[in-house]
Simulated scan of single mutants.
Amino acid sequence: MNPFKTVLYAYLILLSGNTVFSQELENNTTQQSSNLPLLENTVAYANPKNDNILNSFNYNSLSQIDTTHANKNTIAYPPAFKDYRRLAYDTGMYVGATVIAFGILYAMPESATNWDKQAMKENGFAYKWKQNVKAGPVWDEDDWVLNYVTHPYSGAVYYMTARSSGFNIFESFLYSAFMSTFFWEYGIEAFAEIPSKQDLIVTPVIGSAVGECFFYAKKSIIKHDRRVLKSRFLGYTTLFVIDPFNTLLDSFGYKEKQKTQLNVAPIGFDKGTNKTVWGLNFSMQF
């Protein structure tokens, strides 16, 4: 069978299986949270006529234990707002990582990368970049692993960078397309070779499809206390593989800007007076 078809079919099977598995985990977690029992609590307050007599009335609400359990399974991922600051930090990390990646590729043999190192040395990097940009894009002859494995993975990482910063599917795809096209194909890689037709398509398109599966997988991992098969090590390792830059950023102690909210909301129902019990809800996000 053609290697391209083999990889394509493998990706389709991986995407469908990964999506079903992740969504099933998410649905099971959501169903467990929604099936929490509604317990009956008691509110006691002093009678105005006699401070020594306490009247108690029953009302229905979630107990403190249930509330804690529900909150544990509803960790805010992705963020409820577009975190441009996180995306900017991640993009800055790309620059540093790309310099390292360029050095690794330059050190690899020409048979693996198809880079003309001699021309790069003789005419300079800038001259070679202009020459390659004018000549492209072309159908390259790179190894199929580079074209149909590493490039889709890179596109998925680009996609996850935006998706984990609160951006939607379309916006994350645009970010992946921008980074793969202008940052890599017509940017860094153009210093060494002519932009590739298949890379311009495969990286953002298949990469975004893989990235959305990564997104559902990350949601499931986070909801399960960052564990995979009950292992914290496997959980963090998987998170690093599917979303390396956000995982690194979080490990460095990144925190969103503080957000506070104060509102009045019903917290129960008083059967004695047949009235709703109201309270102040204060939330703070760091």
Rank of each mutant, 00 (worst) to 15 (best):
N2D: 15
P3R: 00
P3W: 01
F4W: 13
L8Q: 03
L8D: 02
L12W: 06
L15S: 03
T19N: 11
T19L: 09
N28V: 06
Q31H: 05
L38A: 09
E40V: 03
N41E: 07
N47Q: 11
N50D: 13
N52H: 10
I53Y: 09
I53N: 15
L54N: 14
N55H: 06
N55I: 06
S56V: 15
N58C: 10
I65L: 02
D66F: 00
T67L: 00
I75A: 11
A76W: 05
P79S: 06
A80V: 12
A80E: 15
D83I: 09
R86C: 05
A88P: 15
Y89E: 12
G92C: 14
M93C: 07
V95M: 13
G96H: 15
V99Q: 12
I100M: 14
G103D: 10
Y106M: 08
E110P: 05
E110K: 14
K121T: 05
Y127V: 12
G136I: 14
G136R: 02
P137C: 11
P137D: 15
D143Q: 10
W144V: 03
L146D: 06
V149G: 02
T150W: 11
H151L: 13
Y153L: 11
S154F: 01
G155I: 12
A162Y: 07
F167C: 08
F167I: 12
N168M: 10
I169W: 12
F170M: 14
E171R: 04
S172W: 05
A177Q: 11
M179V: 13
F183R: 04
E189K: 04
E193Q: 04
K197T: 10
Q198H: 06
V202Q: 06
V202E: 07
V202T: 11
P204Y: 15
G211W: 14
G211T: 06
E212D: 10
E212L: 12
K219P: 03
K230G: 03
R232S: 05
T238K: 03
T238P: 00
F240H: 02
D243N: 08
P244T: 09
P244F: 02
T247N: 00
S251L: 03
K255A: 09
K255E: 06
E256Q: 12
K257Q: 13
A265H: 13
F269D: 01
N274F: 08
K275W: 07
K275Q: 14
L280N: 01
N281L: 10
N281S: 09
F282E: 05
S283W: 00
